[in-house]
């Protein structure tokens, strides 16, 4: 019985992993790929690993440790990447454009570096 429940949990997890990949393929730019990539792989791997832990109760402790590790590190690596991408956007935009309706961070940085040249209005600046 336990084994069947665990196997179906793992099946659900694998569907979220597949969804993450489809999202990474379909989304238009790297921020949106990060969105689907991080969220869906996190829940997908949680379900997959907990499912395996339910199938083999003697591994449940290790699986939960692994789940905790994934939950803590996956967002952190995503932050590091997003930050790096935003800092390097001038170079990256030559290769692949990002779609941003509003970019408060770029506005804040512009305001900090060249305050006088700051455009009037509240930040409709799209970096193209």
């Amino acid at each position: 019985m336990n084994e069947t429940i665990g196997a179906f949990l793992a099946l659900g997890g694998s569907i979220f992993l597949l969804l993450a990949s489809v999202g990474m393929l379909r989304m238009p730019d790297y921020y949106n790929r990060m969105q689907t990539g991080t969220k869906a792989t996190t829940l997908g791997s949680i379900l997959f690993l907990v499912g395996l832990g339910v199938m083999r109760p003697e591994w449940l402790g290790k699986m939960l440790l692994l789940v905790g590790f994934v939950v803590l590190t996956n967002p952190v690596s995503s932050h590091a990447l997003a930050r790096a991408a935003h800092n390097a956007r001038a170079k990256l935009d030559k290769v692949g454009k990002t779609v941003l309706a509003v970019d408060a961070l770029a506005d804040a940085e512009d305001a900090a570096t060249d305050a006088p040249a700051r455009a009037a209005g509240n930040g409709e600046a799209e970096h193209a």
Partner: peptide, 14 residues
């Protein structure tokens, strides 16, 4: 992801 039109309107807010 599964919506055929990809309903997104991305941006960075503070």
């Amino acid at each position: 992801v599964l919506h055929p039109k990809l309903p997104i309107n991305p941006g960075i807010v503070a």
